[in-house]
Design a protein around this nucleic acid. Sequence first.
DNA 1: TCAACCTCATAGAAACATTCTATGGACTCG
DNA 2: CGAGTCCATAGAATGTTTCTATGAGGTTGA
Lengths: 330, 330
Amino acid sequence: MRLNRLPDLEALALLVTVSELGGVGRAARQLGISQPSASSRLRTLERRLGVPVLQRLPVGSRLTAEGQMVVDWARDVLGAADALMVGVTAMRRVRGAALPVAASMTVAEYLVPGWLLALRPIEPDVTVGLQVVNSARVAELVLGGEAEIGFVEGPSLPVGLASLLVGRDRLVVVVPPEHPWARRRTPLRPHELAATPLIVREPGSGTRIAFETVMERYGPLAEPLLELGSTSAVKVALASGAGPAVLSELAVGDELADGRLLAVAPEGVDLQRSLRAVWIEGRRLDGPARSLLTLAVRSMSVARSTTSRSTASQSAASQSGGRPKGERSP
Amino acid sequence: MRLNRLPDLEALALLVTVSELGGVGRAARQLGISQPSASSRLRTLERRLGVPVLQRLPVGSRLTAEGQMVVDWARDVLGAADALMVGVTAMRRVRGAALPVAASMTVAEYLVPGWLLALRPIEPDVTVGLQVVNSARVAELVLGGEAEIGFVEGPSLPVGLASLLVGRDRLVVVVPPEHPWARRRTPLRPHELAATPLIVREPGSGTRIAFETVMERYGPLAEPLLELGSTSAVKVALASGAGPAVLSELAVGDELADGRLLAVAPEGVDLQRSLRAVWIEGRRLDGPARSLLTLAVRSMSVARSTTSRSTASQSAASQSGGRPKGERSP
DNA sequence: TCAACCTCATAGAAACATTCTATGGACTCG
DNA sequence: CGAGTCCATAGAATGTTTCTATGAGGTTGA
């Protein structure tokens, strides 16, 4: 992670605004800075990128072809930054939030920011408070009234809580492309997996507990190859070719998508986990909490339907109808 | 896009490094700055985020629970930034690159950065040059020897070129959740779609041409509701509820995944496009070009075998398959 | 044709942040 | 208890960004 080769986020945001408004001065006004400041900043950005991105015209500025690409890439960066900020902001307001939420780590990390971004235009004035704790504690907080709605992962069903499925996650065994398992033709047997030293998260982490619970029946697990404190650290170890690792699919989706990592599915092992929204049984959710639940439910159904075929109707229908009911336990 | 609420990318990179190395001083050394500078920068970051992220201990520093979340979100941001930089760097070196590549816009925008990120560890010393042009011009450049490998979209098959499928894209009709079509129960008929004014890209853009070609047989298209010069601009118009739009699925993967947009599938219309790698027929690709081709092919097969995933950050992902965001994305 | 108006760029001063070196306090380890 | 490691603070130097004021280039419309 070289420190110096990073783009200036604010300059990128400025460039995006220029592309939307069609002029440097207009963008400056919108962002509340002076026009010369914007001009100079864009020039610095161009110099650092080494590519001209703007075509200055007497009537405004248009993007060059390269600029168009930069803007589209920049939108991704800014979207990620937005997600970070929305997540941090929610974590900061644990007390005194209009909508107190509790979520397990997986849900909080991968799903909550997207929901909050989608919630913002719907409920602009609602301050969300986010508490990131384990699933058991989520249940406590919801039951104790400290969170209006919660999100849990895993197979155990909290009592006294209504719940609704909002997503699925799956633990995947991943290897770098140069690992022997990347080329194996025979399926991975559970016993072989159990007997292989793996890179895993530290004891007590949700991912690790879930994995150990599932693998219990296939015999004792080998000693871990490495125990690391974060998903990121595991990825770093993986990149250096250390060995197979077990991670949440949500955590490695990008790496899987572009081939930096490969998934090896153990034969016949169900590593799927349900992600559920929970709230006090019998209580009717309304207001912002209900909006959030709707978004969460919708995000799942749409994500699933886009891979095969997608129609908007199904997801919309499920919520616009009656109030959500707790699903019965599996 | 408020300018002031953006995080400092370099500070985030520093924090990530601290989380990997376990100490402020160690991270500073790795990044080539002094320890006090790192310390001060982290303090500033904490102040701006409003959340303590580091627990300073006499033996080093550990992340707080909030810090853990911040680091994981930050990885997405940095991944997206990395994708941007790798793309820009490639565009800068059109001449004199060891591996000259030509790609159509869709491929260049959403897939190439992810491939280049994956290529970096495999071929660390190869400078890639990227030319972003339309598919016909890609064919010319490859045939003329100005690009060793090219990537095209669309149904037309270039003559004299060998090709291999590296991905698929699909045009999708998207609406904001509050649009009437989001709640429709009857399937969308092609004629109805043709008769509806849509938000589209400007004439001549690949997305628009592809859409018009497919829709030709269903009668004349209605006048566009809006014609906009970039995907981003279309998204902005969508967000304000303007009306249905037609965009590449790769461009709206994140929005679909978290429900900010909904896809409406027109009945029986095939809006899929193939994305292909092309090179001179009969020529055997080797060296870096072959590595790149391998990565591209792999990214497709893996992407299909896993279900999509989404994180807010993922725009990069969207590029990389989502991950241009760095690494992310569905 | 020309004045009014718009665009973006430049100049120079002030404010701010980051950087460094040097030092100190806190804790662990032997 | 001393040596070593860690992080924080102090104060000066550097660099960037910011602003206001102004200029250059081109369009618009009378």
